[in-house]
Amino acid sequence: DTCAICRVQVMDACLRCQAENKQEDCVVVWGECNHSFHNCCMSLWVKQNNRCPLCQ
């Protein structure tokens, strides 16, 4: 699966965690819609949006 926000494989660290060298801290979360995201990506997304980027 791919993170619906950053488009990186969810089993890999997101771009932000890769840049900050925090790959082991990058975890996967699932929305109520069952789409998967990196927690970092979702945390930033929900500050500006309240819907899944794929379900909009």
Rank of each mutant, 00 (worst) to 15 (best):
N49D: 13
V29G: 13
N39A: 06
M11W: 05
D25T: 07
W45E: 14
C55H: 01
V29R: 15
N39Y: 04
C6E: 03
H35G: 02
D25Q: 10
A13V: 10
C41M: 02
M11A: 15
E20K: 06
V46K: 13
H38V: 01
L54P: 09
V46C: 08
V8R: 13
W45D: 15
C3I: 13
C33H: 09
K22M: 08
V28N: 13
H38T: 02
L15T: 12
D25F: 02
R16T: 12
G31R: 08
R51F: 11
V8G: 15
L15A: 14
N34M: 06
M42N: 12
V10S: 08
V28T: 15
C6S: 02
C26F: 11
D12Q: 05
M42G: 05
C40E: 03
V46F: 14
N34K: 15
H38S: 00
D1R: 01
A19Y: 08
A19P: 00
K22R: 07
N49Q: 11
V10I: 10
S36W: 06
C40T: 04
N21C: 06
S43F: 01
V46I: 10
C52S: 04
C52H: 01
N39L: 10
I5P: 01
F37G: 04
W30R: 15
A19T: 12
P53L: 07
A4W: 05
V27C: 15
C14N: 03
V27F: 09
C55F: 03
Q56V: 12
V29T: 15
V8A: 13
C26A: 10
Q9T: 10
M42W: 15
G31L: 08
C14P: 02
V29N: 15
V10E: 05
S36Q: 14
C52Y: 00
S36A: 13
D25V: 01
Q56E: 13
C40Y: 02
Q9L: 06
E20C: 04
Q9D: 01
S36T: 08
V8E: 14
W30M: 15
L54I: 15
R16H: 09
N39M: 02
C41R: 01
I5T: 05
K22I: 09
C41V: 02
W30H: 15
L15C: 10
P53N: 03
S43H: 10
K22P: 11
L44M: 12
V46R: 13
C52V: 03
E24P: 08
M42E: 06
P53M: 09
A13R: 13
C26H: 12
N50S: 12
L15P: 07
Q18V: 10
D1Q: 03
S36M: 11
H35Y: 02
D12G: 14
V10A: 09
E20P: 03
R51K: 05
C17Q: 01
C17G: 01
C14Y: 04
N39V: 08
C41L: 00
E20T: 13
E24C: 04
S43P: 15
N49S: 12
A13H: 08
N50V: 12
H35E: 00
Q48G: 09
W45P: 13
C6G: 00
L44V: 12
Q23E: 05
S43N: 09
D1K: 06
C55T: 01
L54C: 12
L54Q: 15
W30C: 12
M42S: 07
R51M: 08
A13E: 07
N49L: 04
C17P: 02
R7E: 15
